[in-house]
Amino acid sequence: MTDKEKAKAYWKENIRYVLMLMFIWFIVSFGAGILFKDSLNAFKIGGFKLGFWFAQQGSMYVFVILIFIYVRLMNKLDKKYGYDA
């Protein structure tokens, strides 16, 4: 595999990871905070309705967790394609 093909495959896989993680964040922030709010409000966390909690704080927590997942995935991807230094 040439360097150009390797770089192209690397970025294709990287973009796939980014799209998957952004889709998860969209589902959590928009879906749980807005679309499924009424269903989630039947449950409570710390005295707050779950739909409200996701809209106010849950999506931020999930975003931070997704950052750590992305870092781990990218470290594995760097090793796979030989870009780790």
Rank of each mutant, 00 (worst) to 15 (best):
A42W: 03
F23P: 00
S39I: 09
M74F: 10
F54K: 01
M74Y: 05
L50P: 03
V62F: 09
F26I: 12
I67S: 03
L35G: 06
A32E: 10
K37R: 14
F43Q: 12
G33L: 08
Y70K: 10
A32P: 01
K49S: 13
M60G: 13
G47Q: 13
F63C: 11
F54G: 02
M22N: 05
I65P: 01
V28C: 13
L66I: 06
K49M: 12
L40V: 02
G51F: 00
F30L: 09
I24R: 03
F52E: 03
W53A: 10
L73R: 02
Y70H: 12
G46V: 13
L35T: 13
K44G: 04
S29V: 08
K49R: 14
I67E: 05
G58L: 03
V64H: 04
K49F: 07
K44F: 07
A32M: 15
G47A: 15
I34W: 09
N41W: 02
L40M: 12
A32K: 01
I65V: 14
V62D: 05
L35I: 15
M74H: 09
F63H: 04
A32Y: 12
N75F: 10
D38A: 08
L21K: 05
V18F: 10
F68Y: 06
Y70Q: 13
V71K: 05
G33T: 04
L66V: 02
F43V: 06
W53F: 14
R72A: 11
M60D: 11
K76R: 14
G47K: 07
L19G: 02
F52P: 00
I27W: 03
I45V: 15
L50Y: 03
V64Y: 08
I34N: 15
A55D: 15
K76L: 13
K49A: 12
F52K: 01
L19V: 08
F48R: 14
M60W: 07
F63I: 03
K44A: 15
